[in-house]
Amino acid sequence: MWIPLLVLSALLSGALGAWAAVRAARDQPVIWRQLKAGAVVEGVLVLEAAVAVVMALGTSRPHDAPTFWGYLVTTLLILPVAAAWSFAERTRWSSVVLLVAALTVAFLQLRLWQVWQA
């Protein structure tokens, strides 16, 4: 359940990033529908974090625990903060902010997997 959730989060945030990239290229700002999509991604991330906590309470633990939990908390914070920060800007640059945030979340899924394993 854990790995598929990581993959799903990475794919969804990657898709959100692609959407933001298209809007940035067209000189358009972040729109409300993107924030709703971001909320869906955030929901999957919360579920992922909950599963990680349940797993850690059981037998399987992350290999590098402090780093793992650091990444997990960061993963949860990025999209809400980026949404607030980007939405105040009504130019294409808000789309670039969302793009950076979405790519960071996708990249952190890979790091989470690596830190859990290694």
């Binding site: 980026a82 130019t91 640059w93 902010v97």
Partner: peptide, 11 residues
């Protein structure tokens, strides 16, 4: 913190 600066502050 406006325009490109929005991105700079985010990064």
């Amino acid at each position: 913190a406006t325009g490109p600066g929005r991105v700079l502050v985010a990064v």
